Computed example of a mutant assay.
Amino acid sequence: MLRFFFWILLIVNALLLALNFGFLGKWSGEEREPSRMKLEKNADKIKLMTANAAQDLIDAQTKKVEPALACLELNGFTTADSKSFDEKINSLSLAARLTRTELAEVATNMVYIPSLGSKDAADKKAAQIRKLGFTEFYIVQDQTPMRWAISMGVFKTPEAAKAHLANLQKKGLKEAKLAPRTVSAEKINYRLQDLSPEEKQTVDQIKVAFASVQSHECKAKTE
C-alpha cells in the first residue's frame, strides 16, 4: 500500500512537470497556449516533491504514536512483603527505574487477641483468623505478658484502631481488644518510572497480592 501511494505521488509530479512545459498541449485544444503561459507565469509557485520527500511524507502519516510511559508509586509494604514483591518484579528488569525508600512509622494503638498461653494455642487461633479472611496479623513472641497474644494491627490514631476493632468483632472475633502499645514499624515504598503500558499492567497485577499496599500514579522526575 505504501509503494502504491509513493508511485502515485511520483506520477502526479511528472504530470505537473509535463504540463508546466507544454508537453500535454495536444490534449488541451485551444486552451493549450494560455494554460502553458499561465503555468510558466506561476512556475515559482509550483513545488515538485522529490522521491525522498514523498517517502518522508508517507512515513510521517503511517508512523505509529509512541505509547505514553507511566510513573507509579506503591506505598506501605512491610519488610516481609517487600522481599516477596522484589522477587516477583525481578524478571521485569526495572532496577534502573526503581527507587526504594524505607520509612519508620510509630504507632501507639494496638488491636489484639489476648495471650493464648502457648504457641500451639496461638497457631490454632491464627488458623481460625485466616479462615475469616484476615491476613495482616502476627503472633507476639517476646518475653512480656503479651507473649502468645496475636496482634491484629497497630494504628496511629485511636479512631482507626476502633474502626478495625469493630470490624473484627463483627466478623466473630469477640475477644479482640484495644490497648495502648508503642510499636515502631518499618515501611517500604517504591517508585517505578518509565513503565510501558505492558509493564504497568504487570506491576498492577502483582500489587493485587498485597492488600494493604496503596498505589497511585506520579509525575516523572524532570532532568
Rank of each mutant, 00 (worst) to 15 (best):
A149G: 05
V140S: 01
G76P: 03
F5R: 08
S93T: 06
F137G: 02
L2M: 08
G172V: 01
K83P: 00
M146A: 14
D142V: 07
K156H: 08
A68H: 01
Q201Y: 02
K125G: 09
D123T: 13
L173A: 10
P67M: 01
E136G: 07
K131I: 05
G172C: 02
Q128L: 12
E199A: 08
S93W: 06
A14H: 04
V203C: 05
D142Y: 12
E102D: 14
T135H: 14
K125W: 04
T182I: 15
K219G: 08
F5L: 05
V183A: 09
A104M: 12
N109L: 06
N75Q: 15
A166S: 11
N13P: 07
Q201F: 04
K187Q: 11
D86E: 14
T101W: 04
A51G: 07
Q201A: 15
N42Y: 14
G133M: 07
E217Y: 03
A161R: 04
K124Y: 06
A185G: 09
E175N: 11
V140G: 00
P158M: 07
M146H: 09
S212R: 01
R100N: 08
M110S: 13
G29M: 03
K170Q: 07
L39K: 07
F210G: 01
E102K: 15
S196W: 02
N109A: 10
K88D: 15
T101H: 14
K219V: 03
R97Y: 11
N75H: 12
L69S: 12
R3W: 07
D142C: 00
C218Q: 03
I206L: 07
L98C: 11
V65L: 10
S115C: 03
R36N: 07
R130V: 08
L2F: 02
R181T: 09
E223H: 03
E87D: 14
K156Q: 13
E66G: 02
W27E: 05
T79K: 14
V12C: 11
D194N: 12
E186P: 04
L173K: 11
I129M: 11
V208Q: 07
A53S: 13
